[in-house]
Computed example of a mutant assay.
Amino acid sequence: MKTLLNIIWLVFGGFVLALGYFMAGIVCCLLIVTIPWGIASFRIASYTLWPFGRTIIEKPGGAGLFPLVGNVIWLVVAGIWIAVGHVATAFAMAVTIVGIPLAIANLKLIPVSLMPLGKQIVPSNRPFVSTYR
């Protein structure tokens, strides 16, 4: 079922969203100072391509000062606008019965689009076991 939903997601918006995050990652990596946001954009792009069966968690070890400051800068510069875009497309997807799971997946992208630094993508079908002790 996850594979079918991922294919439908990819066709009806996932590819375009992933392409947008990928292009933002390239731009951020070209501007040397914004490389951490570029890496986070690539991570979000991979999650956006195939969201069903995966989830986003905080990285083990907690967030430091840099991710906190970086997330605040990201939130002000781009995060709010990206989140608004995800909400708008989620409403558009939820119009049909088939689109409801796609809308939910779009809403799952909002927390990581607001604060992308310090996040990790893991499979959701098995519990995450930290190797950091």
Score class of each variant (00 low, 15 high):
residue 96 T to D: 01
residue 123 P to N: 10
residue 107 L to Q: 00
residue 122 V to P: 04
residue 99 G to V: 02
residue 102 L to I: 02
residue 118 G to C: 07
residue 127 P to N: 05
residue 96 T to R: 11
residue 89 T to N: 13
residue 93 M to S: 03
residue 95 V to Q: 08
residue 116 P to L: 08
residue 104 I to P: 14
residue 125 N to E: 13
residue 114 L to F: 10
residue 116 P to E: 09
residue 93 M to D: 04
residue 128 F to S: 12
residue 121 I to K: 03
residue 98 V to H: 02
residue 93 M to T: 00
residue 121 I to E: 08
residue 100 I to A: 07
residue 87 V to N: 05
residue 120 Q to I: 04
residue 108 K to M: 01
residue 129 V to D: 04
residue 125 N to K: 12
residue 126 R to S: 08
residue 105 A to V: 03
residue 120 Q to E: 12
residue 102 L to Y: 03
residue 106 N to A: 14
residue 116 P to F: 09
residue 91 F to C: 13
residue 107 L to F: 01
residue 91 F to K: 06
residue 94 A to K: 12
residue 102 L to S: 09
residue 108 K to L: 01
residue 104 I to N: 13
residue 110 I to N: 04
residue 105 A to P: 05
residue 100 I to C: 09
residue 114 L to E: 11
residue 115 M to H: 04
residue 94 A to M: 12
residue 110 I to Q: 05
residue 92 A to N: 11
residue 105 A to R: 03
residue 125 N to W: 14
residue 122 V to S: 08
residue 99 G to Q: 11
residue 118 G to N: 10
residue 89 T to H: 11
residue 93 M to K: 15
residue 101 P to L: 06
residue 94 A to I: 10
residue 87 V to W: 07
residue 102 L to K: 04
residue 103 A to D: 08
residue 97 I to H: 08
residue 117 L to K: 14
residue 104 I to G: 13
residue 120 Q to F: 00
residue 126 R to F: 00
residue 90 A to L: 01
residue 91 F to S: 08
residue 125 N to P: 05
residue 120 Q to R: 12
residue 92 A to C: 13
residue 90 A to W: 00
residue 96 T to C: 07
residue 119 K to C: 12
residue 91 F to D: 01
residue 92 A to Y: 09
residue 114 L to Y: 11
residue 104 I to H: 15
residue 123 P to G: 04
residue 99 G to Y: 00
residue 95 V to P: 12
residue 115 M to D: 06
residue 97 I to N: 09
